[in-house]
C-alpha cells in the first residue's frame, strides 16, 4: 500500500484529522467558548482539561456535531467521529448485544454480526452479551457506551468525562481499552476533571478556562510554564498555572 510504502516517502502519523479555528459558542449572554483553536492528529490522545464551566463539554459537543458553533469553524472528517457522551446513551432495557446490533444497523455497518462480535470482544463483555445493560456495573456500561461510539470505526473518538463514576479498577480497564484504540490509529480527544488521568494518558493537553484555550502542549511543557516552582505534583502545577493566569 502507498500508506506504508517507502516509495513515496510520506508518513501519515502526523496527519491532522480534526481542527478548529476560533470557535465561539454563546448561551445567552454567557460565552461558553471564546475563540478556541486547536488541531489533533492521527492516533493522538488529547486531554481537554479545565475547571468546572470551562467549556470542555461544549467544545466536545461542537466537535461531535451535536451543537453548532456561533462562530469559527471545525474541520473534521465527515461522518467519521465517534461521540461518547458523559451520560451513557443507550437503552438500559435492551441487552448488550441488542444495543450494539441496533446502533450497528442505524450506522449501516456492512457486516453487523461480525462488528457486534468484534465489539463484544474488544469490550470484554462477550460473556455478558445477553444481560440487560441496566444491570451492568457503571464501568461495563461505560464500555458499552464507548463501543457504540466505535461501531462505525471512526477516525476520531470524542470522550466526555469517560471515567467519571468508575472505580480505580474499572478506570484502569477503560484506559487500557482506549489506549489500544489510539495505538491502532484512532485519534482520541477526551475531557476529564481528573488531572492525574490527563497527565497519565493525554499525550497532549488542551487547557480551557472560562471558554478560553490557555494552553496547548504536553504535561511537561505545562509544568515548565508554571512560574512558581516547587509544585509537588502535576495537579499542584496545574492549579498554579491557572492561578498565574487569573483563574
Amino acid at each position: 500500500m502507498f500508506a506504508e510504502s517507502a516509495t513515496h516517502g510520506r508518513s501519515i502519523d502526523g496527519e491532522v484529522v480534526i481542527e478548529t479555528r476560533a470557535l465561539v459558542k454563546r448561551f445567552g449572554e454567557r460565552e461558553a467558548l471564546r475563540g478556541v483553536s486547536f488541531a489533533a492528529h492521527r492516533g493522538e490522545l488529547l486531554a481537554v482539561i479545565g475547571p468546572n464551566g470551562a467549556g470542555k463539554t461544549t467544545l466536545l459537543s461542537i466537535l461531535a456535531g451535536i451543537r453548532p458553533p456561533d462562530a469559527g469553524t471545525v474541520s473534521r472528517p465527515p461522518g467519521e467521529i465517534g461521540w461518547i457522551p458523559q451520560q451513557a446513551a443507550f437503552y438500559r432495557r435492551l441487552t448488550v448485544t441488542e444495543n450494539l446490533r441496533l446502533f450497528a444497523h442505524l450506522e449501516k455497518v456492512p457486516d453487523t454480526d461480525a462488528t457486534v462480535e468484534e465489539m463484544l470482544d474488544q469490550t470484554g463483555l462477550a460473556d455478558r452479551r445477553n444481560d440487560q445493560v441496566g444491570t451492568l456495573s457503571g464501568g461495563n456500561q461505560q464500555r458499552i457506551n464507548i463501543a457504540i461510539g466505535l461501531l462505525a470505526r471512526p477516525r476520531v473518538l470524542l470522550l466526555d468525562e469517560p471515567s467519571a463514576g468508575l472505580d480505580p479498577r474499572q478506570r484502569e480497564r477503560l484506559w487500557e481499552f482506549v489506549l489500544g484504540l489510539a495505538v491502532a490509529g484512532t485519534t482520541v480527544i477526551f475531557s476529564t476533571h481528573n488531572i492525574a488521568e490527563a497527565e497519565r494518558y493525554g499525550q497532549r493537553l488542551l487547557v480551557l478556562a472560562d471558554g478560553e484555550a490557555l494552553f496547548d502542549g504536553t504535561s511537561a511543557e505545562l509544568h515548565a510554564a508554571v512560574r512558581e516552582s516547587g509544585a509537588r505534583d502535576f495537579e499542584q502545577a496545574f492549579v498554579a498555572f491557572l492561578r498565574d493566569r487569573g483563574h
Partner: peptide
C-alpha cells in the same frame, strides 16, 4: 436514555 442526541446526530 440520552439516546435522542445520539440518534439525531445523523443516524435518524
Amino acid at each position: 436514555e440520552n439516546a435522542f442526541a445520539r440518534l439525531t446526530r445523523g443516524l435518524v
